[in-house]
Nucleic acid binder design. Structure first.
Length: 269
DNA sequence: TAGGCCATCTGGTCCT
DNA sequence: AGGACCAGATGGCCTA
């Protein structure tokens, strides 16, 4: 598919997507970036060479969690269902004047797409609408063949609509800038972003488990007394914990206690 | 104007 | 046989 050949995009929010979706497969980066940034951080991988990579670090582009479906529908570029614009049955209205477009019984709107609204090619429309000038004996068969073809087309259209609906739902649950002024994520962007979001969540979960295990492993009351990692304890795999402990060690005792209660950087985990 | 994205049509393949 | 799935082709829309 050509869409997958050239992923660079000219769309407004696409740059954010690229840095996130293609490069950020090393989630720990988001924890190392100072502050409770639960956002997408460019991982400095291959994607960092992408001209748009830096924009992914822009907090302004940071996720505003799940917008509702209504908001999604306001996003420019949103596909408009034929039925939603009152174009159901368009084909059959035309088909009545064109003997080649006939159906068996009352047609469903799915069988009657709107040639003016759809993006179908003129070639496709022409081949479907043209009169083949076949002999009368094959006319019935031809009509039946057209009906079969229309049914197949309708099913395929419905299938693609279902796929798009699923993609819309996916857009609704992954963090990115949901806004009427921001164009919705492309399909490929949605999939890549979702993939990295899952990886990030899994990574966060792993780290949280390690932190909990570590805290449970330390002597009771260690936090109140001032947390100090055991000499042999390797904090390399605990970026957030390391940062937390470092801050703890730099703060006076009083401030330390307050910080623990008010949810400091460590609380972001 | 070129490039990206998309919807649709279409024919092929596989499965039930 | 009919339906689901897939990929290629095509043209429209939008943006830089």
């Amino acid at each position: 598919m050509k869409s997958f050949d050239c992923e660079s995009s000219s769309e407004g929010d696409e740059p954010t997507m690229h840095a996130i979706a293609r490069g950020a497969v090393e989630p720990p980066q988001w924890l190392r970036a100072g502050g409770p940034n639960w956002g997408w951080q460019a991982a400095g991988g291959p994607s960092s060479s992408h001209p748009a990579a830096s924009s992914a670090l822009d907090p302004a582009g940071f996720p505003q969690f799940p917008a509702n479906a209504e908001e999604n529908q306001q996003v420019p570029g949103r596909r408009t269902p034929l039925s939603a614009v009152g174009l159901s049955g368009f084909y059959f209205q035309g088909g009545q004047s064109n003997p080649n477009i006939v159906g068996h019984g009352p047609p469903s709107d799915e069988n009657n797409p709107d040639p003016g609204c759809s993006g179908q090619s003129a070639r496709a429309q022409e081949s479907r609408l043209q009169n083949p000038q076949n002999p009368g004996s094959s006319k019935g068969k031809n009509r039946q063949g057209k009906t079969v073809r229309l049914n197949i087309n309708a099913r395929e259209r419905r299938r693609m609509h279902d796929l798009n609906d699923a993609l819309d739902e996916l857009r609704g649950v992954i963090p990115y800038a949901h806004s009427p002024s921001v164009r919705k994520l492309s399909k490929i962007a949605t999939l890549l972003l979702a993939k990295n979001y899952i990886l990030m969540q899994a990574n966060a979960l792993e780290e949280m488990k390690r932190i909990i295990g570590y805290l449970q492993g330390t002597a009771a009351g260690a936090v109140g007394a001032g947390i100090v990692a055991p000499p042999a304890f390797d904090l390399q795999g605990f970026p957030a914990a390391a940062k937390f402990l470092q801050q703890q060690s730099l703060q006076p005792d009083g401030a330390r206690g307050r910080e623990q209660g008010s949810g400091g950087p460590g609380a972001a985990v």
